[in-house]
């Protein structure tokens, strides 16, 4: 059906107004002889309002990528431009100033552990605003005004995280990332811990967010969980971006053997027995 040749990489030219641009990013852990390369020469640019899925297996460096962009891990080379600022060489003070603007936010994988068990939902949600210096009363009204967007009700505000269901907790975690009206939200496996109904609900919220012009980076090991929301997909394999392209192209016509294995491995409703043989062949190819 689709006749055009599919370019393997796309969208490097929009870097002037991009919310995030990574060029030649590399990260190492450990020092001297124990030095291990975690990320190598990663190039990625994210336009405002764009949703990019970053796919990779455990140990591929996908979480490190997120943590580097957030300043929790130091880059050992390359450049990171967040909202027009080159942040690769930033010290703690500069990072704090940038973070207080609330431009970039993060949603953790485990919703239970990412909320302080001793703070009520209202307190957790207000925190990013209070840190910015917003007065307490104004923060409370802004939090209230926000609840609808994440399908939470006001009676949950006085509860502790332990008193919420898994789906509610993840929506609170998403809400906390959104109250500062960020331009970029990085989400690490936001739906892996949820069951079908909650998964659909959170994905729906994310879709609406994208329609509001927020850029999303959606990190997952599963191509299937980002297929429904991502405009573009970047595949991370052993610390390198091996394939970047429009979601439809990457899924329908994967180029790299690892991407092909990902597509063939993702559980779908219409899998054929022939997939099994293809997977075996791809595994052999990747391990060779």
């Amino acid at each position: 059906m689709s006749a055009d040749a599919i370019p393997c990489t796309r969208g490097g030219g929009m870097s002037t107004d991009a919310v995030l641009t990574l060029e030649g990013l590399s990260v190492h852990y450990g020092a001297r002889r124990r030095r291990r390369r975690v990320l190598h020469d990663v190039n990625l640019s994210i336009a405002p309002g764009e949703t990019v899925g970053v796919i990779g297996e455990t140990g591929s460096g996908k979480s490190t990528l997120a943590r580097t962009v957030l300043g929790l891990v130091r880059a050992s080379g390359g450049s990171i431009v967040v909202d027009g600022e080159e942040v690769a060489g930033y010290g703690p003070r500069q990072w704090r100033a940038l973070r207080r603007r609330g431009v970039v936010q993060y949603v953790f994988q485990d919703p239970l552990r990412s909320l302080d068990p001793d703070l009520t939902v209202a307190d957790s949600l207000a925190e990013p605003l209070l840190v910015q210096g917003v007065p307490r009363a104004e923060a409370a009204t802004r939090v209230r005004a926000f609840l609808d967007r994440v399908r939470l009700t006001e009676d949950l505000l006085d509860r502790l995280p332990g008193e919420l269901s898994g789906g509610q907790r993840q929506r609170v975690a998403v809400a906390r990332a959104l109250v500062t009206e960020p331009r970029l939200v990085i989400l690490d496996e936001p739906v892996s811990a949820l069951d079908s109904a909650n998964r659909v609900q959170v994905l729906q919220i994310l879709k609406e967010l994208r329609d509001d012009g927020v850029a999303l980076v959606f990190i997952s090991h599963d191509l299937g969980s980002v297929a429904g929301v991502a405009d573009r997909i970047a595949v991370l394999y052993r610390g390198e971006l091996v394939e970047t392209g429009a979601a439809r192209d990457v899924i329908a016509a994967p180029q790299h053997p690892y991407t092909r294995l990902l597509v063939r491995s993702a559980p779908t409703l219409h899998s054929a027995p022939a997939d099994r043989a293809e997977r075996d062949a791809l595994r052999a190819l990747l391990h060779a």
């Binding site: 998964r199 299937g224 969980s225 297929a227 329908a252 779908t268 409703l269």
Partner: peptide
């Protein structure tokens, strides 16, 4: 998969058709 009768089964299938890979991988047969 093809003729789900219960609403809940339809929800499980819809999740894959709207948000999963099935969105892009139309069944060939």
């Amino acid at each position: 998969l093809h003729h789900p009768r219960h609403e809940y089964t339809r929800l499980l299938i819809a999740e894959h058709e709207q948000y999963g890979l099935d969105r892009f991988l139309a069944p060939e047969e």
